[in-house]
Amino acid sequence: MIAAIAALLIVGLINRNVNNSIDQAIAKGERVPAPGFTLPVLTSTAGLPAAGQQLSLSQLHGHPVVLNIWASWCVPCTDEAPILQSIWNRYRSEGVYVLGIDVKDLTGDALSFHKEYGLTFPTVRDGEGNIEGPYGTTGVPESFIIDRNGNIAAALRGPLSASGASANVNGFVSVLDSIVAERS
């Protein structure tokens, strides 16, 4: 019994560690398979399951994906929302999906956020925040670029920013351009 409790404690302590394997692989110039998920759709778009139905990441295989983890109560998320919408507007015709994952948020608040910022890209809901462990997220927002084969090519730990010293949109978009250019 004591051994079982000790084992549970060890497992718990290990699980508390942040998973940084994605960042380590990207730093080496490698790509790692994007952790899979199946989550209920909050807002949909043409060709994807309707709101309330389940969407799996594997259903987007063959398409580059900009995965954005966000929440309506997150202030930086409000700043980057228009940037994500502009990426969606610019790249959707190239087969790119911008997919939001709304974490630890009230459904009504998330829908209001989408409406307020005029967001039309699809979003799935992860109220429990189960996505955070596999993606090694430590907060919101965070964004990932996933290639057509389902591998993570870039991870941005923090908000997308278009101006100031922390401007990073150009770098992010240039990675996306190279991923879009990789025709399978």
Binding site: S72, W73, C74, K104, D105, L106, E128
Partner: peptide, 22 residues
């Protein structure tokens, strides 16, 4: 509080404040 794991009544995290309002 879903983000800070402390009881909701003592949390002032943005997510907790929204749930309290809810």
């Amino acid at each position: 509080c879903p983000t800070c794991e402390v009881p909701l009544n003592v949390s002032n995290a943005p997510s907790a404040l929204r749930i309290k309002a809810y």
